[in-house]
């Protein structure tokens, strides 16, 4: 009983924390983009105000829509984004659900919010949303390949280094992949880091990979028919997903903690690590989302596929080869 209670309590706390951090990230993002474009930008609290207002507004269901699917999908998106967090360790805090899930499960769970968007888009019965939903599916297929490649190769490298349970997050907490590789492997991991930085805007539908929402051509694409509370829930889902996606990357590739440096233990260590973890999330988000979306134009959907499959796919293969060579040289094979 206690375990269930703590799991439920943990989920609620984590969801609130993730929503807060996610909206805060969106605020920072908008602010920095504005400054880079020589504008003032909105106050940091703007995303909170936006969501608050959306929840106060009427939710309109279009006549062509399938109401139950249309209304259900925002909730599915939010629930699945929060579910991802339950399997992720934050700093030195173990995942709420312990070892119940691994990296493969998180990979699948990260797809669910996008799928919810796609279904919601198709259920809205608008041509803009339909085109947007088709594009979202195509871009999912596009970015899943480099994403899966990078996750699996890291787990494989850990396995070769005789680490038990390489797909488990608790293993990742204890063993940093950077510690087991040699010089070649470090180059490979740096490539994977770049890869992850470029997958993140795709996963989060940000410029230059925001084709599914494409304001100027599709008027908001998938979300075009969503309004009021439904749109508010989608915004929360997007905020949580931003945290989850970036946290996933940070856990795999930037796993360091601050507490060993200060020699802290216990609750103090957990708190310091948690703060440091979110600092890492903010920094990664600034580099891989904010800066990228300021300096680029939107890709065509065909270009999105080409970029992810051929350029980043190629980079992924380069990383695989480097890590395999490294494993061979380090005597794992």
């Amino acid at each position: 009983m206690n375990i269930i209670l703590s799991a439920v309590g943990g989920t609620v706390v984590l969801a609130i924390l993730a929503i807060f951090v996610g909206l805060f990230l969106a605020g920072i993002d908008r602010r920095i983009v504005a400054h880079m474009q020589a504008r003032m930008g909105p106050p940091l609290s703007q995303p909170f105000t936006d969501v608050k207002k959306l929840f106060a507004k009427q939710s309109i269901v279009p006549a062509n829509a399938i109401p139950w699917l249309f209304n259900l999908m925002p909730v599915v998106a939010l629930a699945s984004s929060i579910a991802v967090l339950l399997y992720l360790p934050f700093g030195s805090l173990a995942p709420i659900l312990g070892d119940a899930g691994d990296m493969i499960l998180v990979l699948y769970l990260l797809i669910v919010p996008s799928l919810a968007l796609v279904i919601g888009g198709f259920a809205s019965g608008s041509p803009y949303a339909t085109v947007g939903a088709q594009r979202e599916m195509v871009s999912m297929i596009a970015y899943e390949l480099p994403l899966a490649v990078s996750v699996i190769i890291i787990a494989w490298r850990l396995m070769v280094a005789n680490v038990a349970n390489p797909f488990s997050f608790t293993t990742l907490m204890e063993t940093s992949v950077w510690d087991v590789v040699g010089p070649l492997g470090i180059v490979g991991l740096l490539i994977l880091l770049i890869l992850f930085a470029w997958i993140t805007p795709g996963e989060l539908s940000k410029v230059p990979f925001d084709t599914p929402e494409a304001e100027t051509e599709l008027a908001g694409g998938i979300l075009v028919e969503y309004s009021g509370r439904n749109l508010g829930v989608f915004s929360l889902a997007q905020a949580v997903k931003t945290v989850a996606m970036i946290a996933f990357g940070v856990i795999i590739l930037l796993p360091w903690n601050l507490s060993p440096v200060f020699g802290l233990t216990g609750a103090g260590a957990a708190a310091v690590d948690l703060v440091f973890f979110f600092v890492k999330v903010v920094i990664v988000s600034i580099f891989s989302v904010t800066v990228v979306r300021t300096m680029m134009a939107r890709f065509r959907i065909t270009q999105v596929v080409k970029v992810y499959w051929f350029i980043f796919g190629g980079l992924g293969i380069a990383a695989i080869i480097l890590l395999m060579l490294d494993a061979f040289l380090m005597g794992g094979l």
Partner: peptide, 16 residues
């Protein structure tokens, strides 16, 4: 044109 391409930074620059 820059805005239509989704390149808002260039849009702000041109208008500035």
């Amino acid at each position: 044109a820059a805005h239509e391409l989704g390149f808002d930074t260039l849009f702000y620059l041109a208008w500035r």
